[in-house]
């Protein structure tokens, strides 16, 4: 990932900053300019709580080259208490146990490396919930 793009995405990736529509209250992660629910354009910044529930999941056995050594790994669509949904990996557990309904905490992790000498790209992954 080129550094300028990565830099732009830091607030969302590092701090789970999202946008909440002032009109209808829909939370979009990452924040958008236009609310996908009501097309409102007035957004306030909110932070997602660092936990959520798995909506649907899979275990990737055939990964892209950048993730070759991590396979098999679980990926899930996670929904937070604010109603925002996003995709991420769920780690630190047997990937086959990552199923819809699972509660996860979101931890700060290294997501990908830009090869051997490129930048390191961080973000949040799910881990089995602590409560």
């Amino acid at each position: 990932m080129p550094s300028p793009r990565y830099h732009r995405e830091i607030p969302a990736r590092f701090r789970l900053e999202a946008g909440k529509c002032a009109g209808c209250g829909r939370v979009s992660y990452p924040a958008r300019k236009v609310c996908p629910a009501c097309r409102g354009q007035e957004m306030e910044q909110v932070k997602l709580s660092p936990r959520g529930t798995v909506v649907t999941s899979t275990v990737i056995h055939v990964p892209p080259d950048d993730f070759l050594n991590e396979a098999p790994y679980a990926m899930a669509v996670v929904e937070t208490a604010e109603g925002a949904r996003f995709m991420t990996q769920v780690v630190d557990c047997d990937p086959s146990t990552v199923l819809p309904g699972m509660e996860v905490d979101l931890e700060f992790r290294l997501i990908r490396k830009e090869g051997k000498s490129g930048i390191l790209c961080y973000g949040h992954k799910g881990v089995p919930g602590s409560v």
């Binding site: 991590e70 990996q89 780690v91 630190d92 931890e107 700060f108 992790r109 290294l110 997501i111 992954k125």
Partner: peptide, 16 residues
């Protein structure tokens, strides 16, 4: 550490 853990991620978790 997992492949996705390093000094930075450990520091963030501890810092939180």
């Amino acid at each position: 550490p997992g492949l996705d853990e390093d000094t930075i991620t450990i520091s963030v978790a501890a810092g939180r």
